[in-house]
């Protein structure tokens, strides 16, 4: 796989401009690379290193700390079943075993058609709705084994599963790597202005000028 495309380089520069120091953009940029390719390749990491002015080893150092970044190709859909305590109490492990049987893979594995990668994950913050899972970080909650099969069948057939929750009604489930479907846009004309910390030497102006009823 590859370096960032021209369109993504443009987005990368917009992201970098939001931070007082370029390296702060690294995690969002790694997500951008993963959004482009579905995983993070060495070439992409080397490109990010150029963009933020660090070494490729530093990018790799950051990348390997975070489990959402995949250093090898994974399925189009990442199926993350929670087995942490609240889900375990209400059938999370049984759901995972069912997922293993339905997909024919163990956690960490990918189906031979490249559609699904299964993961056994830690708490994904839907504990009252146990057992739960995420498919490309969209929730399915209070899932029965039948619900699980329905979600998988829908995805195989190219349908958006009713049983997965999206930000807006009708949103698609994007392929692995894309998180939110919209990005923040920081219009330079409307922004307060982002500068490196050493360029700020005085208190913000409003602390002295707005003393009530301004």
């Amino acid at each position: 796989m590859s370096r960032l495309t021209e369109a993504n380089v443009k987005i990368a520069h917009e992201i970098i401009a939001r931070y007082p120091r370029p390296k702060s953009a690294l995690i969002p940029l790694l997500h951008l690379a993963q959004e482009q390719d579905g995983w993070v390749s060495d070439e992409a990491m080397a490109h990010l290193a150029e963009l933020v002015g660090v070494t490729p080893a530093e990018v790799r150092g950051t990348c390997t700390f975070y489990e959402m970044f995949k250093l090898h190709p994974v399925g189009t859909y990442m199926v993350n079943v929670c087995t942490n305590i609240a889900c375990q109490l209400l059938g999370g492990e049984e759901l995972l075993h069912h997922a293993e049987k339905t997909l024919g893979i163990r956690p960490g594995g990918t189906t031979s058609d490249g559609m699904f990668t299964l993961e056994d994950v830690e708490c994904i913050a839907a504990c009252t709705e146990a057992p739960c899972m995420q498919v490309n970080y969209r929730y399915g909650v209070r899932l029965s084994t039948d619900d699980f099969d329905e979600i998988i069948d829908d995805l195989r057939a190219g349908r958006t599963p009713d049983k997965l929750i999206t930000a807006n009604p009708g949103d698609q489930i994007p392929s692995h790597g894309t998180l939110g479907l919209t990005r923040q846009h920081l219009d330079p004309d409307k922004a307060a202005g982002i500068v490196p910390p050493e360029q700020v030497t005085e208190n913000p102006v409003w602390l002295t000028t707005t003393k009530g009823d301004s």
Partner: peptide, 17 residues
């Protein structure tokens, strides 16, 4: 319309408790 100016930047992590 005041002198108060601040930028809020959305940042996101990548899976680490």
């Amino acid at each position: 319309g005041t002198d108060f100016s601040v930028d809020i930047v959305l940042h996101w992590g990548a899976g680490a408790y």
